[in-house]
Nucleic acid binder design. Structure first.
Lengths: 344, 344
DNA sequence: AATAGTACTTAAAACGTTTTAAGTAATGGG
DNA sequence: CCCATTACTTAAAACGTTTTAAGTACTATT
């Protein structure tokens, strides 16, 4: 019945009484084609319902017009937001996206996914996995040389790599300085797991800010959580037990801040009167909690978009044979002050 | 310096003193190769660092081993969760994922993305955009026939399409029945935008459940929100103004439920003593709100995985030349009871 | 009227695989 | 010792494009 033979550029050529090369010329627009021929070809394409085969095109062009994205934790707010930014800019630049998710972001062996992307001849790769423990160990010049250009998200600055990230240290400073300005003096912190680079950076921002205000490092003010609300709840309980005098908490993400709010409720500490609370991430829920949550907003979609732009220029450079310089780009976050920290 | 000439199967063949066909045979494993030759080839591959070009392979195989995913709203909890499920099962089945995001999920013109996926010769397509208004209008047999197999997520049952979805009507029933069992009698609902199929389904579940308990439809108990917490907050205020006697609210997602909780706080209504609240989605924050939120948990990762499985069998069927039957699969959600609705 | 230049077209050669059909060498049976 | 059979190998032909180098037909110039 339906022989569904795929129709190729040759069928179009035959129908328009012209050679395949000419059809290709009108398709790519790289070479002029006389008006009558062009329109003859166009109607032939239309009538046959011809759809070019991008695989064949990519094969000869040696470029697939696609980017590989390796991400993890997509079920969380941050990563998915970043991906949206990546996708929108990829669209603008005409790239398709090949998505790979890492189930264990701490795993160091990633050669399989990299090989696959390479085999599919992606033009560039965005590495959107958080830096945890030694999961960056594969980033060595020998491996990078065999890969298409790579842009890394959310990792420590490194001379041999292009990196786009939000400025976690600065973000933490914003929050802590705000708490200081609000009159708080004993500001505790609930960090993320310290194998995470981001967690260390935010802790460093807290340290630096307190140091600048003349306080010296006090380990009893630090609790290491694991990003979950449960750990925030437990963290506050422990901190209160150790240091009943604390008057502010900087929770390194909003989930943990949520746990803190809950623990405060049961501990009978009013927020913000008895204890000011600031979070990090500015998740959509933050504005509607009771009390609404002061938080640090990262411009994650911008991170994603910038990553694509940076990658795009690197790709262009390499296709010219030039070696593109590696850059590190930090995007400044912004503090959103809400009820949980405003004394009024 | 580095001439970065890509190394092909022919280079390997030459080095192993063998023909390209034989190398292909050990690569694909479809035809036997004598042990000494095989190992000679293997070491040649190893030494040259050969990486097969999947584009070329796909060209001759007429199958790219990849699935196209068209999604939207990825920054929200549900869609990203579903995508994670899709990705994990795609991995199991050996498919790569080509991701396209729709910025306006209500837009009806989607031919551009479909064309692109088709041009890239994906083996199948997962349509993960919510059904809103007429954005399903393109689903007509003529168009479907030109496409590779498609699986639709979250839409109304339709004979000509394979559909995987959670059972929204049943989920709503779970929540409302639970509120009835808790002794509530005036159960209001805050719906999503009623152009959304899911919103209509959940409303229908509420209606059905109340009808079964002998109550007849009462429009003053219905408020149409837009999925945002802000609309939930406003919804509760309006409902209370209209009907001060309501003793329970079913908010059709957790964001709106969050707004309801906030509004209750300011209106001085205690939850659950004065007003029981149930949400939908069971977002991670639900368990840590004060009070923690009763909600309907959808098994979204399962939806994603099932979609891939269903697509996989459809692909297999079509490659055999058979027409695969269309199926509709509804996945039952589950109610998670928490403080916001338990009278104890 | 010959030459040069312009403006398109085209046949053929890539691109890097897999598959087909044919070939070869070794083994076994009669 | 010949013929089948088995077990691999291989050269060549796809797959569907783009690009290169070579035409071809005009027009403009001398």
């Amino acid at each position: 019945m339906h022989n569904r033979q795929t129709i190729t550029i040759i069928d179009v050529a035959r129908k328009a009484k012209v050679s395949a090369g000419t059809v290709s010329n009108v398709l790519t627009g790289k070479r002029p084609v006389a008006e009558p021929t062009r329109s003859r070809i166009l109607t032939a394409i239309e009538e046959l319902g011809y759809q070019p085969n991008l695989l064949a095109r990519s094969l000869v062009n040696r470029s697939s017009n696609s980017l590989g994205v390796i991400a993890s934790g997509l079920e969380y707010y941050g990563p998915s937001r970043t991906l949206v930014g990546i996708e929108s800019q990829a669209n603008v630049r005409g790239y398709s996206l090949l998505l790979d998710l890492l189930h264990d972001p701490a795993a160091a062996d990633v050669s399989a996914v990299l090989d696959d992307l390479q085999a599919r001849r992606v033009d560039g790769i965005i590495w959107a996995v958080h830096q945890i423990g030694r999961n960056r160990a594969w980033i060595v010049p020998e491996r990078l040389r065999t890969l298409p250009p790579v842009v890394f998200l959310t990792m420590e600055s490194q001379p041999q790599a292009t990196i786009i990230s939000t400025d976690n240290r600065f973000g933490a400073t914003l929050a802590v300085q705000h708490l200081l300005d609000a009159g708080c003096r004993q500001i505790a912190i609930i960090t993320g797991p310290l194998e995470w680079w981001e967690a260390r950076e935010r802790l460093a921002g807290w340290c630096a800010c307190l140091a600048a205000s003349g306080q010296e490092y006090d380990a009893t003010l630090v609790y290491q959580g694991d990003w979950t609300a449960a750990s925030g709840e437990q963290g506050l309980q422990q901190l209160l037990a150790r240091r009943p005098d604390i008057d502010a908490i900087f929770a390194c993400n909003d989930q943990m801040a949520l746990g803190v709010l809950r623990a405060c409720h049961f501990a009978g500490r009013r927020v913000p009167q008895d204890l000011a609370v600031a979070g990090y991430d500015n998740m959509p829920e933050a504005a509607y909690l009771v009390p609404s949550l002061t938080s640090v907003r990262q411009h994650l979609a911008d991170v994603g978009r910038t990553a694509v732009e940076e990658l795009h220029t690197a790709i262009a450079a390499r296709s010219q044979g030039e070696a593109s310089p590696t850059v590190t780009r930090l995007i400044a976050p912004e503090l959103i002050v809400r009820e949980s920290s405003s004394s009024s």
